[in-house]
């Protein structure tokens, strides 16, 4: 564990807490893409297949459980909670995310560390996470102004993988055989997808204006 990875995990946890706060405090999920939340649930379920077989540390196991339970709880809330589901922007959240699942799985069948179920699902989860934010970014562009909590949620979600990139650079220089090319390249793509969001988020912060993504 290094400071970059810990900062990344805490930022990731922060994004989830902000989203839970938004949904719980405002009893609304307007501006939130259910499809992105579903993709994240798939990412964590596919990535943490080793939850019950491999034990690295209490931290590692606890965080995996937190990510799986929170992503499933958010999907359940947006689909079935009486008050929340009414605020879901169904007609705006139309990104065909099944293609992202299919594409990521095909890519994982081609590029993986070992041709085993665990490794193919792990690579699949890495590729899927890189593109999982797309439905959410499309929804933000369509839904005019973005409320503060939603903007902060996406900001922390984008920033966490940026910290992981610093972690991979650090591990590359400090560990002999560190070659996590799948995660590193995918992480770069993932963070790059947030570039325009970060730009408009920074502008809104600088001008103290409401966050607005151009359509």
């Amino acid at each position: 564990m290094n400071i970059f990875r810990l900062a990344g995990d805490m930022t990731h946890l922060m994004s989830i807490l902000v989203l839970l706060l938004k949904i719980y405090a405002t009893k609304s999920c307007s501006g939130i893409s259910l499809k992105t939340q579903e993709l994240y649930a798939v990412v964590f379920l596919a990535r943490y297949l080793d939850l019950l077989t491999d034990f690295f540390s209490l931290y590692n196991t606890v965080m995996k459980v937190v990510f799986i339970v929170s992503s499933l709880a958010i999907v359940w809330c947006m689909r079935y909670h009486r008050a929340v589901r009414r605020t879901y922007d169904r007609e705006l959240d139309t990104f065909r995310h099944y293609f992202l699942i299919l594409g990521s799985f095909v890519l994982a069948l081609i590029f993986h560390e070992k041709f085993t179920v665990r490794e193919i699902f792990w690579a699949f989860s890495i590729y899927l996470e890189a593109v999982a934010i797309l439905p959410q970014l499309v929804l933000l562009q369509r839904s005019g102004n973005v409320d503060n909590l939603t903007g902060q949620y996406v900001f922390f979600l984008g920033a966490y993988r940026g910290f992981y990139i610093l972690n991979w650079i650090y591990r590359y220089f400090t560990e002999a055989h560190f070659g996590r090319w799948i995660a590193s390249i995918s992480g770069l793509v993932q963070t790059a997808l947030y570039a325009d969001f970060f730009y408009y988020y920074f502008l809104s912060w600088k001008n103290n204006a409401k966050l607005k993504l151009p359509a």
Binding site: R5, R47, D50, D54, F56, M63, K64, Y164
Partner: peptide
């Protein structure tokens, strides 16, 4: 697998 190839990151 807790060797080098194991995925110790979240």
């Amino acid at each position: 697998a807790t060797g080098p190839e194991a995925h110790d990151e979240l």
